[in-house]
Every structure is written in structure tokens, then in C-alpha cells.
Nucleic acid binder design. Structure first.
Lengths: 211, 211
DNA sequence: ACGTTACTAGAACGATCGTTCTAGACTCTC
DNA sequence: GAGAGTCTAGAACGATCGTTCTAGTAACGT
């Protein structure tokens, strides 16, 4: 049996995945972790916020390591990307569409509210983007292109997880993975910076955003 | 001054964008809407759940209409996509990175918990994907390809919003929009179905997913 | 004028929230 | 074996949660 601190960390991560930050109570945490309130506040004196921060960074680095492992086993960065998406799809199906990763959920809940948690999620996302960008750059892509591509891939991954969970269909992840692979392949072949036009759509956006 | 029901709806949508479903209390709602508990339960007898369902469908269709407007004003579907991403980026900056849309946030919180809310979010996402797919198909893409492409675009949009809010940098949305535009262009040019290989990465995923 | 319906107002309910606090049970060191 | 950490145990706190309920006002058809 793992020590109390990691039990609390694991249980919190799992609960965050299912119900998010505000939807998870510390009573649920202590029960799931077979711990008591005293222990929780002993290891995390800052309470729920500190606990959340620890969960974010812990599972953030865990997923980064997972990506590195998969990327090490892949022939090309494009393979690594589609492998990661496919692996996520498999995991989602095996876990009956319970969320794989708590970070996107918590990030959305706290981005406008809790500055320290926002910063913690940003650090995690940044680490992922850097990790992917390093692979692209190592394969010959210019640094700026690598970074932009990695940003898009991480965004698509996070969004695809939401869609897949909501639709209870992991195919969304596989499809998005294939498209990301195609995008990576295309960019590798022609690493031209594309400065798209910013047309007059922001006014329409603005007038509708509050409805 | 709008009628009470729409005031409640608007206020709830705004609060959901900032704090999510569980992070928003009905007291906050009534205060922001200048309404009372009695009015809230008069219009939404089902309580918080029914209110959330109404908010999801309302702002879901609002954003779909917004997409149609932008797409109508764009020369090609690829233009429509990058216009929409750029417009979202502008709006996010103007609103100081408060979330643009409550649906992704709520969907994440309730996907594993509340079946009716999950179904409501799925309907919204499905509507968006269909709307985008229709544009792609009208431009000549086979139906299956159009649907897969639309799924990817919606996923990337949702994920890019999360990343942009978290990093407080709308550039993420613009970059992702450019990449989505490139992807759409590429698929339009060569609408070949790409069946990516599912390599042996799910085992690694599985062993790490709980950490 | 009256009854009916639509809506507002907010006190009150039990449950649960995050947090604090005191007390006890284990280690170790000296 | 005394004392100082380290960790566990859980009762108790005030605040706030979603919901219910009763009472009241406004508007309208007849």
C-alpha cells in the first residue's frame, strides 16, 4: 500500500478527472484515499489549493514522461503523435470514458479565478508543448514552426478528449490523431510559415459572444 | 431590460464561463441576474440541472449561428475556419481571457456524472461538427472526410481556447487556426482517407494513466 | 369586481462545504 | 525511557450549498 501522501494524490487526480476541481470534495478525497482530514492537512497545509497544485504538476510530468517514452519508440515525430492519440483512445475506452487527465478540466475551471492554479496548469501545458516541439525540431523543423505545430497538437489532443468523452466515442481521438499526423507530415515536408489573413470576423464574434 | 428568464440565462452562461458548473452557485446567478430564487425556480423548476441544460443549448445554437454567419461571409471553408479562430482570439483578448463559451467547461465537469447534461453537450458539439462538415461537403469533400475534418477542427478549437486562456495568450488560437486552415486546404486538395496504424502504445498509456 | 394565472420575494431547511483544532499513536534520537 | 518530531484520528466550526415553501403582487379575461 502506497504511503498516505501518494494515496491522497492519486485519489484526488482520479476524482478531478471525473468531477473537476469544484465538483470534488475533500471528504470524497479522504474516503477514496483511506486517509483522514488530519493527514490531508498535514501533507498539504495549504488545503485544497495546494493539493490541486500538486496533482496538476504530478500528473502533468507523468504524461510528459509518457509522451517521451512513446516518442522514443516511434520512428518519426508524426508516428509519435498518432501513437499518442491512439493510446489515449484505447485508454479512454478501457476506462469507460472517464477522463484520462485532470489538467484540462481543472485549467478551465480556475483559469479566470485562481492565479496560482492557472500558473500551474500553464507550466504543465508549456512543458508538453516544449516536449513535442523538441521532437519536431530534432527532426529538422525550424524552432518557430516546431513550437506552433506542437501548440496545435496539444490543443487538438485536449479538445479531442473532451469531444470523445462527451460523445462516448473514442473514434474522435483516433480521427484527430490521424489528422494531426497528416498535419505534421505536411509541415515536415514544407516548413513554410503561413501568415493567415485576419479578416473582419471579430465584430460578429463580439456581438454574439454574450448570448 | 430583458425579461427575467433571459437575464437568468445570460448571467448563468457568463458565470459558467468563468467558474464552470460546480463553481457557480445559484445565489451568484440570482444576484448577477437581479432575480430571486422564486423566479429562478419558476422558470426552471428542475433547478440547477435544467438551468444548465438551457444554457448549453442556448449558447450552443448561438455559436452555431455565429459560425454560419462567418462562413457565409467567407470565400472558402478554409477561410471560414481561420476567420472563426481569429475572431475567437480577438474576443478572448477583449474579454481579458474570460472564457468565450461555457460548453467545453461544463461538458468536462459533467461528462462522467450527469447523463442528461452529457447528452445536451453532445448535441451541441454534434451540431457544430455537422455545420462545419456541411461546408466542407458543399465545397466538394466526400461526406466521411468532411465529418472527420470537422471533428478535428472543433476539437482543436475547444483545446486552443483552453490553452489560450491558461497562457493568457490568444496567439495560441491564431496559430491553431492557421494550422487548421492548412489542414483543410490540404484535405480539399487531396481528400484521401488515411488509415493510420495503431501501434503498441496503449500498454504504456495504461500503465501511466493512473499516476 | 372577481377569480385565475404568472411572476416575485425571501425566509427557512437539512446537507455539505473547506478548514481548524485538540488529542492520541507511532517512530526515532539522545 | 524521556522527549521531540511525524503522522493519524475525527469532532467541531461557521459558511454556503441547492431546494422548498409560503406569502404576496401584477396583469388579464370575463
Amino acid at each position: 500500500m502506497p504511503d498516505t501522501r501518494t494515496r491522497i494524490l492519486t485519489a484526488t487526480g482520479e476524482l478531478f478527472r471525473r468531477h473537476g476541481f469544484h465538483g470534488t470534495s475533500l471528504k470524497q478525497v479522504t474516503q477514496a484515499a483511506a486517509a483522514t482530514t488530519g493527514s490531508l492537512y498535514h501533507f498539504f497545509p495549504g488545503g485544497k489549493d495546494e493539493l490541486a497544485r500538486a496533482v496538476l504538476t504530478t500528473s502533468g510530468t507523468a504524461y510528459q514522461e509518457l509522451f517521451e517514452i512513446i516518442a522514443d519508440g516511434a520512428a518519426t515525430p508524426a508516428d509519435a503523435i498518432s501513437d499518442f492519440f491512439d493510446g489515449a483512445a484505447d485508454t479512454l475506452e478501457e476506462h469507460d470514458f472517464v477522463d484520462i487527465c485532470p489538467i484540462g478540466t481543472v485549467a478551465r475551471e480556475v483559469a479566470s479565478t485562481d492565479e496560482t492554479l492557472r500558473a500551474a496548469s500553464q507550466a504543465v501545458f508549456g512543458g508538453w508543448i516544449d516536449a513535442a516541439a523538441r521532437r519536431f525540431a530534432a527532426a529538422g523543423l525550424p524552432a518557430a514552426d516546431a513550437n506552433e505545430l506542437a501548440t496545435t497538437v496539444v490543443a487538438a489532443l485536449d479538445g479531442a478528449i473532451v469531444l470523445a468523452r462527451t460523445a462516448r466515442d473514442a473514434g474522435v481521438l483516433r480521427v484527430t490523431g490521424r489528422n494531426m499526423r497528416a498535419l505534421v507530415d505536411a509541415r515536415m515536408r514544407a516548413p513554410v510559415r503561413n501568415t493567415g489573413a485576419n479578416r473582419a470576423s471579430s465584430a460578429a464574434h463580439r456581438s454574439r459572444a454574450t448570448s
